[in-house]
Design a binder for these strands. Sequence first.
DNA 1: TGCCATTTTACCGATAAAGATAAGCTGGCT
DNA 2: AGCCAGCTTATCTTTATCGGTAAAATGGCA
Lengths: 96, 96
Amino acid sequence: MTMEIEPNLLADVGRRLRALRAEQDLTLEQLARLTGISAPALSLIETGKRDARLTTLAKIAAALRVPIRTLLEDPADAASTLGDVPAEGYDLGDYL
Amino acid sequence: MTMEIEPNLLADVGRRLRALRAEQDLTLEQLARLTGISAPALSLIETGKRDARLTTLAKIAAALRVPIRTLLEDPADAASTLGDVPAEGYDLGDYL
DNA sequence: TGCCATTTTACCGATAAAGATAAGCTGGCT
DNA sequence: AGCCAGCTTATCTTTATCGGTAAAATGGCA
């Protein structure tokens, strides 16, 4: 099996991003001003259509006041996980 | 102080990346073959000179068999940032 | 000292991100 | 129905990533 970067990663990040923005009742325009990233660019990222750079994600995370990790993680732990990160035994086979 | 986001974000990610690669005794060439990312590109990322895209980081993390978030934050840092500290700047109050 | 693996740096071309702007949707109002 | 805030999509330009290749450091070892 070769590698096709899973098409879910960008969509997943976008979904979390949109959820976080909704939690804080921010519009794309407001987030655009906070981050310096244009609203269309934010829209593309949130809809999983753009492969953003690391510093771009960092700007967004900073504006939303969450650690960058929050955008990449999955379920509920985004805000409630203490220090789980088992550090081992990960089978992220489907993350690539 | 403008809104510069963590100027050493890229350097930090690169440092962790290099440490992880060293742990597995991989050369840049070997990691390049595993990821499909050229060795020069990997070198730039590891030395903090390149702002990699999310899927690029995902490929590297997958090849090293670690979750992407390990590249982004130290475990200690991750444990401390759970409720989010405002920390600095970024007052969105003005825009709301 | 030289040799060799590894890494860094520099150039090139193709692809894509990101800002700006504008145009098209979508849904919720009165 | 119209209006409008919010989001999406499109186009354009500038800039950067990324792979490839090749050339310079860098480091180790005999």
